[in-house]
Simulated scan of single mutants.
Amino acid sequence: MRFAGHGDFDRVVVDLQGPMTGYTARWVSKIVQDGSGEAMDVKGGAYLQLTLYPANAHDDVGNSTWVGPRQVTAKLPNVVQVVNNGDFEGVVSIGLVLDHKAGFRVLEQSAPTRLVIDVAR
């Protein structure tokens, strides 16, 4: 996962291994930890939840394949934090903590496989 500012939008890129997985992107009222359903301690003006399925953020013996900390401060104009809030029963969840609600788009890219989330500033 990586992120950067681009002109009038913030971009988050999720690198994937293998073919494109299914996914949804939707507004949620809070970011919750998959499995427990407990609210995560993140503060923002809006929350965008990206859910990947079937997907795993661990290898066959249970070692995490998510590189870096589970909560990353982005310090972009709208994307405040990116949170890995779940790797549970074939579903990986990634929460975008935003300064404010804004238009967004999700793009599928290949070679290498990745999802690109652009959020307007």
Rank of each mutant, 00 (worst) to 15 (best):
H100T: 08
D87P: 13
V32N: 14
G37N: 06
S36L: 06
I117G: 03
V67F: 15
D87N: 15
L76S: 05
L115W: 01
R26M: 09
E108Y: 00
G68E: 01
N63C: 02
F3K: 01
K30Y: 13
T21P: 07
G95Q: 12
G7F: 10
S36F: 03
V92Q: 04
V67M: 12
A102Y: 01
T73Q: 13
N63M: 11
G44C: 06
N84P: 00
R114A: 11
H58N: 06
T65V: 08
D10W: 07
R26F: 08
Y53V: 06
I117R: 02
W27N: 04
V12A: 01
G62M: 02
K101N: 02
A120P: 00
V80K: 15
K75V: 03
Q17Y: 12
A111N: 11
T113E: 05
F104S: 06
W27Y: 13
G18F: 03
W66A: 00
W66G: 00
Q49N: 09
P112Q: 09
N84D: 09
L115I: 03
G22K: 07
G68F: 01
R26S: 09
Q81A: 10
S64E: 11
L48G: 02
W66C: 01
L76H: 04
S110R: 14
G18Q: 04
N63F: 15
S64C: 02
S29G: 10
D99Q: 14
G44K: 10
R114C: 07
A57I: 08
G62C: 01
S64V: 13
L96Y: 06
D34Q: 15
K75W: 09
